[in-house]
Nucleic acid binder design. Structure first.
Ligand SMILES: NC(=O)c1ccc[n+]([C@@H]2O[C@H](COP(=O)([O-])OP(=O)(O)OC[C@H]3O[C@@H](n4cnc5c(N)ncnc54)[C@H](O)[C@@H]3O)[C@@H](O)[C@H]2O)c1
Ligand SMILES: NC(=O)c1ccc[n+]([C@@H]2O[C@H](COP(=O)([O-])OP(=O)(O)OC[C@H]3O[C@@H](n4cnc5c(N)ncnc54)[C@H](O)[C@@H]3O)[C@@H](O)[C@H]2O)c1
Lengths: 267, 267
DNA sequence: CCATCTTTGTGCACGCGTTCACAAAGGCAT
DNA sequence: ATGCCTTTGTGAACGCGTGCACAAAGATGG
């Protein structure tokens, strides 16, 4: 069981660093584009630019896969596409089920890029009886009652969860019990899964909050640059009296009227 | 313009490490749940479990914000919710525009959790004239012609791109020219943006490919454990003659009538 | 066959992030 | 008050990821 682990810490991908694995799809996408334009070879510099990374990083990444380049020339595009595809396991077919066919689930089901890389939507599953049999993306929605059978009949190892957060943990347990060992979770919850099961999450809200943090930071720096850096508004340093008071009020909302809690951020 | 940088390397969030910033929303979510259950205080151990992280990591993360805990007791839930919200900039309102109201864009527009943390969908924008004025999530879709005016009138700094990949770069340029400085990109492309602009990407296909890599790895290890670890199939080590031949054939798939081509993907 | 020029592959150093482990802090009971 | 017990906050060690810089490899032209 273990506590909700979010990424793949256990598997310890022998040899290839996790950071490299995460970039391989990026390289593959850039290479595919080159391949379509019939470009025969590409240098690490060019490919790195197309993938939006540093060329040294790219070369080091490729070095984990083997020596597939030719010095003085670059990399053979088609050959590299094949090698990366093989390394990522895209030379085989991966049946996938999507659970929770609401707004998001339906959009995912309709997503073309889904099938373009060896992933095949094997089934769409929803708990709503009214959805049963209803076609979404040209495929009938099936009921959760048949989840186990669907997973096992199709040899599914990868599941996508797009249910409300409250149902996600339970759905993940059923998926795992039925044989799924990799989950892509769109529900905003931490999933607790056994060792050996990989979970990756996509959380729109978290991404926006991270952007907001930096955005606020920019606004603060800008204000500090314009003004004499005396006023605060959003900067972390001290904290104005009224803001501190609000914080104190929130903190004291339970017990006595200890109206203290001065300027925070001591350490 | 710089090459497509993907994450926030420039901003150098003074003080708070990027990895910590990325976890703050996780803590906030867990704390909000506790708050709703009227739990007054929580220990680092409990909160860490709820957020799916290590308790030492959580304490260190909080130490960057300040000393908000009480030794022997734990953290005041309400107070911490306030502090993290403030740090993330969620105490203010963030108007957001979504560009590209197709399957995904519509799902995002309908997403309730969007507005729950200070983010407000200020406008939905699409290039399709047929979409103009059509209500999606109770809001009329506006045409791209008015993009600049919408951004400026609403003081939008955060934009979400859900257009096809081919249009993403151009859309990002218009957004940025109009004043957007943070972009959440759902299109599978590397965006080239000027310094000072943050881009975060959500790419379903990449996530699935990473899962496939580990899935393949699991299958390989399993097979190796069962069999005598002699056969390859997917293991990285050397490269057998026939495998190399297949690769070479794939590389030549463009010119000659080599009717093979493994499983490699096209699009 | 040799010289030159381009580009790979990688040794190395550095910085960030994670984790351990513990002293200090504070509540609480006596 | 005093001592015990819990939990925080953090110093320090470690490991991973990144980027530099360059020697080696190989293509290409003479
Ligand atoms: N829509 C988005 O843009 C978006 C963005 C980020 C995250 N999310 C998250 O994705 C999830 C789905 O979002 P949505 O907007 O599609 O919600 P939705 O309500 O439109 O769809 C949820 C679907 O899940 C089904 N469902 C409920 N319980 C189930 C169960 N136990 N087993 C199988 N199916 C079940 C429902 O019948 C419904 O069809 C939510 O957790 C949401 O927070 C959505
Ligand atoms: N649907 C998914 O689940 C999913 C998942 C991952 C990634 N994506 C990516 O998200 C993007 C959108 O996917 P989708 O399924 O919603 O596609 P879609 O074709 O349904 O929608 C695209 C929308 O963008 C609009 N558009 C096109 N060019 C535009 C422009 N220049 N300015 C403004 N709007 C423009 C179109 O009119 C259309 O409404 C694609 O890049 C896709 O690869 C989608």
């Amino acid at each position: 069981m273990a506590t909700g682990r979010t990424h793949r810490p256990a598997t310890r991908s022998r040899g290839i660093p996790e950071a490299t694995v995460a970039r391989l799809p990026l390289y593959l996408r850039a290479l595919t584009a080159l391949s379509e334009r019939s470009v025969p070879t590409v240098s690490s510099e060019e490919l790195a630019a197309a993938a939006g990374v540093n060329s040294a990083k790219l070369r080091k990444d490729f070095s984990y896969l083997g020596s597939y380049g030719t010095r003085g020339v670059g990399y053979d595009v088609e050959y590299l596409v094949y090698q990366i595809s093989r390394e990522l396991g895209l030379t085989q077919d991966w049946p996938v089920v999507i659970v929770g066919i609401g707004n998001l689930g339906a959009a995912l089901a309709n997503y073309g890029g889904f099938a373009s890389r060896g992933f095949r939507v094997a089934a769409l599953i929803d708990a709503d009886p009214a959805m049963k049999g209803k076609p979404v993306a040209g495929m009938p929605v099936q009921h959760t009652d048949d989840l186990e059978k669907i997973i096992s009949d199709n040899g599914v190892h990868i599941g996508v969860i797009a249910t409300p957060a409250g149902a996600a943990q339970q759905v993940s347990e059923r998926l795992i019990a039925a044989g799924v060992t990799s989950i892509l979770n769109f529900a905003p919850t931490v999933l607790s899964v056994p060792d050996g099961v990989d979970v990756r999450k996509v959380d729109l809200s978290i991404e926006l909050q991270i952007l907001a943090f930096h955005e606020q930071r920019k606004a603060g720096e800008e204000a500090a640059a314009v003004a004499g850096a005396a006023d605060d508004v959003v900067t972390p340093p001290p904290l104005r009296a009224d803001t501190a008071a609000a914080a104190a009020a929130a903190a004291a909302s339970r017990k006595g009227p200890d109206g203290d809690v001065p300027a925070v951020m001591p350490a």
